[in-house]
Every structure is written in structure tokens, then in C-alpha cells.
Computed example of a mutant assay.
Amino acid sequence: MINETEFRLADGTDTRTLPKVLLHDHLDGGLRPQTIIDLANGAELPASDAEALGQWFEDSANSGSLEQYLETFAVVLSVMQTADALRRVAREAIEDLDADGVIYAELRWAPEQHLRDGLTLDGAIEAVTAGLREGCEAADGRIRVGQLICVMRQNDNAVAVVEAALRHRSASITDARVVGVDLAGPEAGFPPSGHREAFALAAREFMPATVHAGEGDGVDSIASAILDGRALRLGHGVRIADDIEIAEQVDGHTTVALGRVANWVRDRELTLEVSPSSNLQTGIAEDMRDHPFDLLYQLGFDVTVNTDNRLMSATTPSLELVRLSDAFGYSLDDLEEFAMNAAAAAFLPQEDRTDLAERIEAGFQDARG
């Protein structure tokens, strides 16, 4: 269970008061355990009370394997097959993020995974949109949201999914509709090149794309995300560190050499949607202090802080900031830079990104007193 002290930095700052922009958060990875129980309508679950069920998700996700981590989604997807369920989950996601100080979020999900009980792609998107709008309206303008529609890389529905995303694309930051597309699912063995046609379609229609890459597979996957997936951001992307050579010199100085892909990602400022706690669960590192986040930050990569799946990682955006700060000694200035990176990379018009940056600046100024 999370306690209040976990939200505080070493200087006492409550990270929930800091304005945040969240680029990588899965709708189906953020359900409240009690909601799963309610929506299951008595169907068998791994645990029968909310606290025990939440612990089951966290324990099951701590496998060190992306593939095993993804198996926990079978439970949540089983209760997200109706319009009412999708609407409730979407509304509650906004409530939870608003309570954590998020001012803009891009929630990603795969409509093709919610069609077992008769929903269509369009019907599923309409239900989620309705729930997101309800949550934003109740928050009275504190938080805005956009949707990222995921193509599942192990399936063959990519073009149809992108076409559906285009039918529901956003016209305004206030409409809670689709702002981009994504490629998700088991990374190894399912390269972005397998869905080149779908992402070319998105590009022709000027819909931005982010692609999961560099989490469950290496540098070649990242290269394919850029070349075949037309990625403007990289979902996780942390294994770009595999393309960085660090050498200790005799005089004590350290030299760093970046490979071709790492150079491209850094120099073109392709944003890394890093989800530190989730990355530990899927085997990127054993301890936060060994996570490549700080290496990438110090080398000038455009890093952002994300949650991936709040349920499975027992986390929130505010907790991720504390965990990183405890590991690497980050100051409020560092945390503000991560938030600014996210605002600049959001799939929004420039004027909306500028507004987010101004809200971040004001919020961090208030935190400094």
C-alpha cells in the first residue's frame, strides 16, 4: 500500500502538487482494483478484495520479462468489453490523474482488444471518449487529455485501427479525442516493419506516431520504429543505451561514444517516454540506481517520466518522480525539465504546448516558494 511519505522529496516537497504532463500511460493498465471487482460481476478473479488484487497485479508483473508482464492484461481486458465499462474506466483514469497533479495526459489503448461482446472499433472509441470528457469536465479544467490509439503488433488489423483513429482525431485540446497512434504489444519478433503500411497511412494524414521500442528488444527495434513506424517519440526507448559505449581513460576521465542510432535519437531530439518502475519489472535493470535514465539525461537525450501501467507497477506519476529523485538526487529544476520535455513533445498544436509549459513554470515556481 502507498503511504503519504512516499510522495515527498528529500526537501519535503509533495510531488502531487507539481504540474505534470504524462505521455505514456495505458488506459487498461491503470484500473482501480475495486473497479475490476465491480465490473467482473462475480466472475472468478485472482483475489476477491481490492487490496489483495492490487498486490497480485504488482507481484505478477515483477517477472523480469515483458512477455510475462503483459499476461496480467488478460484479467483487466476481461472486464473492459462493454461501452459502460470503458466509459467508467476512462472517467476514473482522469479522476486519478487529476488527483496526482497531471495537467495533460495522453492515454493509450487498443480498441481491437475490446470487441469480444459486440463493440465495434468506433463504438469502443466513442465510449472511451465519453468517459474522458466526463472526467475532464468534473475536473473543471485542471486536466486535459488526448487518446493514443494502439496497433497491436502481433495482430493483422493495423490499417483498420489507424483508419478508425483517423475518424476520431482531435480538433481541440478540449475534446478528449485521438491525437496520435502507437504500436504496442510483445516487441521481440514483431518489428514495426511489419506494419509499415499502417504507419505510412498515418503519416500521409499527418497523424503523429509513437512506437514502443527499446524495452523488450534492442537497437534494431528502435531503428525500425524510426524508419518504418515514423516514430516522433519512442515508447520507453531505454535500450538505446545499448548503442552507447562508455570507456574509462587512464587519467580518470570517462569518454562516451554514441552509435548511429543513438546519435540520431539524441540529435533529432526524439523523446524517450521512460517509465522507470515498469522498466525494472520487465528486466531493464535490477535497481533504480542502475536504470539508464540518468545516463541518458546527462548525455542530453530528451527524457520524460511516465507510468506505463499504474496498476501493475503500483505507481503514480508523482511516485515516479520521487523514485528517480531518491536514486539520482534530482532537484526541482531537474523535475521541471522532465515536465517541460513532455510538454514540448505532446501531440498538440504549438499554442497548446506553450500553455502547458507556462502552467508547468508557474507550478514549479509556487513549489519553490
Rank of each mutant, 00 (worst) to 15 (best):
102 V>D: 10
122 D>H: 13
164 A>N: 14
183 L>Q: 11
151 V>Q: 03
182 D>F: 10
123 G>S: 07
139 A>I: 05
176 A>C: 15
119 L>W: 09
74 A>Q: 14
116 R>C: 02
131 G>C: 07
136 C>D: 01
99 A>V: 05
155 N>T: 15
174 T>M: 09
169 R>I: 00
154 Q>I: 05
113 Q>T: 08
62 N>L: 13
74 A>I: 08
128 V>H: 01
67 E>F: 06
137 E>Q: 11
165 A>I: 11
105 A>N: 00
74 A>T: 14
59 D>N: 13
184 A>N: 13
116 R>G: 03
119 L>C: 08
151 V>T: 12
82 T>C: 09
181 V>F: 10
161 V>E: 06
78 S>D: 13
174 T>K: 11
163 E>Q: 15
157 N>L: 11
123 G>L: 08
108 R>N: 00
125 I>N: 02
69 Y>R: 10
84 D>W: 01
75 V>F: 10
174 T>G: 12
56 W>Q: 03
63 S>A: 14
133 R>Q: 15
162 V>M: 09
75 V>R: 03
148 L>E: 06
162 V>A: 07
91 R>Y: 04
103 I>Q: 01
77 L>M: 11
118 G>P: 05
175 D>Q: 06
156 D>T: 13
100 D>F: 06
86 L>E: 03
183 L>K: 08
127 A>P: 02
148 L>W: 00
124 A>V: 04
101 G>A: 12
82 T>N: 06
130 A>M: 08
119 L>K: 08
129 T>R: 08
64 G>R: 12
187 E>K: 06
195 H>C: 12
173 I>Q: 05
182 D>T: 08
170 S>F: 04
131 G>R: 01
63 S>L: 05
164 A>C: 15
64 G>Q: 08
188 A>I: 11
177 R>M: 04
139 A>N: 09
183 L>H: 11
158 A>E: 04
111 P>D: 02
93 A>R: 06
66 L>F: 13
186 P>M: 10
167 R>H: 12
191 P>A: 03
131 G>Y: 02
124 A>C: 14
153 R>W: 10
139 A>Q: 11
195 H>W: 13
177 R>E: 01
67 E>Q: 10
171 A>L: 07
66 L>G: 12
141 G>M: 07
123 G>Y: 07
183 L>T: 12
96 D>N: 03
122 D>Q: 10
85 A>K: 00
121 L>T: 12
132 L>A: 04
159 V>P: 06
173 I>A: 14
109 W>S: 04
142 R>T: 14
57 F>M: 01
184 A>L: 08
94 I>F: 02
62 N>Y: 07
109 W>H: 03
188 A>W: 05
69 Y>V: 03
183 L>P: 07
119 L>V: 07
165 A>C: 11
158 A>C: 06
191 P>S: 06
71 E>S: 15
